[in-house]
């Protein structure tokens, strides 16, 4: 029996109850010592990078979060302020809570929409047909723009009073607004921008879909399963590690959402703070007002909060993510 056939057997369209596969392979022989050594051998570059490149700046920023560091002054004149930055953040900075709210709205709306768009289009494009490659490229194009100056001008012009979106609405007799300049809708245009750039998760979904063995679908077809049924019983579970990856990453990205807010509002978070994301507020504090100690404190609060969210996502992953390697 080929290895693939084995997998097929384990992931028949009716997915086995979560975890049952895991129990089968807990009793592996005592290769542990050599494996442990090999583990660290393979991990060496990363560990080296962690120690020499990643850890030092992170720990420095943690230290700075307890100081009044202001970027410009001599390092010697920096003073230890204890928890002052943290206290100010929670009690004296109204923009902080406003930014938290804005970010939550953005992340909770944009992330699911973007993932749904990415998955939907990826499934549409997965079947081999002539133009599929072209379409893949075309749908990925918006992501290539990143957060460039050009993008800001383009987006503003799409959603301005005389922009393309309003021309579209006028076909239906609706008179639009200057969406980008309206404090009630500016965040909405940012969310649309995020969804528009669904190319990155789409590519990851496409790559993941290629890992799903065709035999599964063939077997299901023999059983007479409908396309919807196949999607739910085969595609989703087989794709779940990749869905999980995209979910974690896009959640983090959503909360970090800086670039588009920065370029669209010229770095201000306007109109009237309507696009003042958490990271943008942090940037303004650190780089425009030179309160880098405070900005660092904001960054570490962010890390803790998102760490918690990520941990929760990882926990729930145990219930719906199915790994072919038999672990969870």
């Amino acid at each position: 029996m080929s290895p693939v056939a084995t997998t097929t057997a384990r992931h028949t369209p009716t997915v086995p109850p979560a975890g049952s596969a895991a129990h089968q392979r807990r009793d592996r022989p005592a290769r542990h010592r050599s494996e442990s050594k090999a583990g660290y051998v393979f991990l060496t570059p990363w560990l080296l990078g962690l120690v020499t490149i990643t850890a030092v700046p992170m720990l420095m920023s943690l230290y700075l979060s307890f100081t009044n560091y202001d970027v410009l002054s001599d390092w010697e004149s920096m003073e230890w302020v204890g928890l002052d930055n943290y206290r100010t953040m929670f009690t004296e900075d109204p923009s902080f809570w406003h930014a938290v709210k804005t970010t939550l709205v953005f992340a909770l709306v944009a992330t699911p929409l973007k993932l749904a768009a990415a998955l939907g289009v990826a499934v549409l494009l997965n079947k081999g047909f002539k133009a599929a490659g072209l379409f893949r490229g075309l749908f990925y194009l918006p992501s290539l723009l990143g957060g460039s100056v050009a993008l800001a001008i383009v987006w503003v012009n799409m959603f301005n009073r005389d922009g393309a979106f309003n021309s579209f609405l006028s076909w239906f007799g609706i008179e639009g607004k200057a969406w980008v300049n309206d404090p009630d809708f500016a965040l909405g245009t940012l969310i649309l921008l995020a969804v528009w750039q669904f190319g990155a998760p789409m590519v990851i979904f496409l790559a993941g879909l290629k890992q799903v063995p065709n035999e599964l679908y063939e077997a299901a077809s023999v059983d007479g399963a409908s396309p919807v049924r196949k999607f739910i019983s085969i595609t989703l579970p087989m794709l779940s590690p990749v869905i999980f990856f995209n979910l974690v990453l896009e959640t983090i990205n959503g909360f970090q959402g800086f670039t588009s807010a920065f370029v669209l509002s010229n770095g201000t978070g306007g109109p009237v703070d309507s696009t003042l994301m958490y990271t943008l507020h942090l940037y303004i504090k650190g780089w425009n007002e030179y309160q880098m100690g405070y900005a660092s404190a904001m960054a570490w609060v962010f890390l803790l909060a998102i760490g918690l969210v990520t941990a929760v996502v990882f926990r729930t992953g145990k219930f719906w993510v199915h790994y072919s390697d038999g672990e969870d």
Partner: peptide
């Protein structure tokens, strides 16, 4: 730890990284 390094907003790392 590896996942953790993804979470810190990069703007507070610029200066420490530059100094390093």
């Amino acid at each position: 730890i590896m996942i953790g390094t993804l979470l810190l907003p990069g703007h507070v790392l610029i200066v420490p990284q530059f100094v390093m």
